[in-house]
Simulated scan of single mutants.
Amino acid sequence: MDYTSPTPMGATEVNAIKYYDYDSSVTEDYRDFSNPCDKSFVRDFRKYYEPPLYVIITFLGVLGNALVIWIYAFYRTRVKTMTDVYLLNLAVADLLLLLTLPFWAADAIGGWTFGPVLCKINSACYKINFFSSMLLLTCISVDRYYVIVQTTKAQNSKKKRLLCSKLVCVIVWSLAVVLSLPEFIFATTKDSEDSTWQFCTMVYHNNQNNRTKIMVLALQILMGFCLPLAVMFFCYACIIHTLLKTRNFEKHKALRVILAVVAVFVLSQLPYNAMLMVEASQAANVTITDCHVSLSFDIATQAMKGLAYTHCCLNPFLYVFIGVRFRRDLLKILHHYGFVSPSGKLGKTPFRSSVMSDTDTTQALSL
């Protein structure tokens, strides 16, 4: 993102310096320091940190999410519950988001060489799938709450809920497109100060007060973290309360799954969103004026952004492959294509539903 922070009250000397932002490579005209602040180290860190990390995340994420889509494509009658619909859309959203990472890795190495149109498209595709993924996680939490806590109502309205889930997915994708409009409008390429390379970034036209930048950041924090987190905490708290009251079920395994889902979401998303909050504060009212503090902030932001991306490759394992049903279906597909023998252990495993699988009444509580 590209912005010029307002000059602090009473400042008499202004020096333009290079400032690295976590959504792109570098911005310019950062005017909050009394002396020039050399941030070339941040670019070097990004060059060596992001590409290998993004390659690993993309490889694991594409493999996991492609397997999920493959299972749904192989078993066409499998998409018969709300959670199935949400999981399929989540896999598509995560897969499409992961496909934007190689472009950002290339940008970290040698700047943006793909032109302004692809810059805008790549930025928008990233945000569309980011918001879709987070909103679909919210929908999965609500559906699990409804199936486990509101068991009777859930059983009596299966067909209606399945139809509703498809409508919800259309709304989620449409909302994600709307939330990504800032990328369509403001994302573009910019030359570096020495004009030796370009970077893909958000360029706002009201740099004097940064209101647009603050609104964009606030929107991402609210819809991409705060809302999903609040819904997940409420739904899973109610689910845990219900599980603790049940008897004769392997509720400790179900509790581990729930805690893992919430823990991974918080640990991967909270640090990055905390950095977004600091940047929004910086845009609204200059809070970082020391060069060393700014360097540390930039490095931490780059690291936390990479951590946030890991959620895309972990989703298939958290929401899908922890369930015996998906593992059994995968084994059947592998056997169908001759990759495994029919005597595999999972092939003989009696069916037990996952807490993330939409099943009848109490079966949804066990793994």
Rank of each mutant, 00 (worst) to 15 (best):
F33M: 03
P52F: 09
S25A: 10
K80F: 00
V26S: 10
F131A: 00
W112H: 12
L95A: 15
C125Q: 10
D32V: 14
P51Q: 11
D44H: 07
A91P: 09
D94F: 01
F74G: 00
Y48E: 14
A124G: 08
W112C: 07
L95E: 15
T81K: 04
I57R: 05
R78V: 02
T58H: 05
D32K: 09
Y20W: 13
F59S: 07
F103S: 03
Y86I: 06
G64R: 02
N129W: 07
G115S: 08
Y49I: 04
D32Q: 11
N65F: 02
Y20R: 07
F74Q: 12
S133N: 11
I69P: 08
A124M: 12
P51T: 12
C119Y: 13
L60R: 08
T100W: 12
L99M: 12
Y49Q: 10
Y48Q: 07
L118M: 10
L98N: 13
V68G: 04
R76C: 00
A124F: 11
L88D: 07
T58Q: 11
D21A: 01
I57C: 05
P51D: 04
D38P: 02
K120T: 15
F103Y: 15
V117P: 00
D107M: 08
S40C: 02
S24D: 10
L60P: 00
P116R: 05
F103L: 11
L98P: 10
L101E: 10
D94T: 00
R76I: 01
V62P: 01
L67H: 09
K80P: 00
K47Y: 12
D23T: 09
N65I: 05
Y54I: 13
T77C: 02
L90M: 14
F59L: 11
W104G: 00
R43C: 00
L101R: 06
F103E: 08
F45G: 01
T113D: 13
A105T: 05
T81F: 04
Y49V: 01
V68W: 10
F59N: 03
I57Q: 11
S40D: 04
T113Q: 15
S123K: 11
F74Y: 15
F114D: 06
P51F: 12
I57S: 06
N89C: 08
L118C: 02
G115L: 10
K127N: 13
R43F: 01
I56M: 10
T113H: 15
L63A: 01
N129I: 05
